[in-house]
Amino acid sequence: MLRHTLERLLLAVPVLFGVLLLGFFLMQVVPTDPAIVRAGPTASMEVIEAIRQELGLNEPLWKQFFIYMGRLLQGDLGVSIINNVPVTQELGATIGPTLELMLASLIWAIPLGIVMGTVGAYYRGTFLDRIIMAASVAGVSIPVFFLGLILIWFLGFQYQILPFTGRPGPIWTWEGFKAVIMPAITLGGVFVGPVARMTRSSVLDVLGADHVRTARAKGLPERTVVTRHALRNALVPVVTLIGLQIGFLLGGAVVTETVFSWPGIGRLAVGAILSSDLPMAQGTIIVLSLGFILVNLAVDVLYAVLDPRVRGA
């Protein structure tokens, strides 16, 4: 178990390196000169040249990469071209709200999706099953921004039950809790459908397995048969899907954060890209990639928890 985890951790290192490399070269191919952005539209050629020197943009590419990597290892992601704030500082300020939002979304969406899928599989072909599947299709089909706007219109504007803009405080404060509800519904809403569908098909598969028949032959109650002998075994593909979906959730977070003016990393990334703030954009990409790698790592470890056959291998 521990060995499996360590192995996965080691395997994540080259991936991380690849991400950093890609992050670096991505910014090289963007047809924007950061020095010009930094200097502003009225600057003279001399000023621009000076800035180029200062940013190390005249060095050969490989040397730039090493400088970039060296600074990265020291936790230095550079300074925003737009407002001169260290990138790490901005990232640090936005990562909390984003994690908060994602957690608040997943904490209801995953259980709901799993329950819906399991119930659908158990009552396959019935009216209940069809309603559940229709609901999950609807959940997938409604665009994030649309659901967000509908919620804002009804809950925020018409009935004024919940706030719909900004983040007045962390989630453990009452104001902060109320503020996260609508963004979490919006972002989690996209998540429920795929999880429900994957759970349904996976549980359906396992329900036909021999060991489920054995469990029934032992005289176990249906609830135990379904949860302990069907769902438990069916979770591996579901966990895989959840891992992948969290990647999309990062993208969904960008839209949700924009709709609800949530001060998260998604909005930071969009802002940085739109304003050609290369160091900032690079920083957000690295953090988001790191998040993705961590999620995948967690999925790999979860495999071993869920399936003892993975542990030895």
């Binding site: 021999d210 028949r213 054995t214 032992k218 003892p308």
Partner: peptide
């Protein structure tokens, strides 16, 4: 019926490979 099953009447199946749940000891 469930009280009897596995208690007074038991059953074993053809495929020992798949008749046990792989995720439990």
């Amino acid at each position: 019926m469930r009280d009897l099953r596995g208690n007074r009447i038991s059953m074993i199946f053809q495929e020992p490979m798949t008749s046990l749940n792989p995720v439990h000891t």
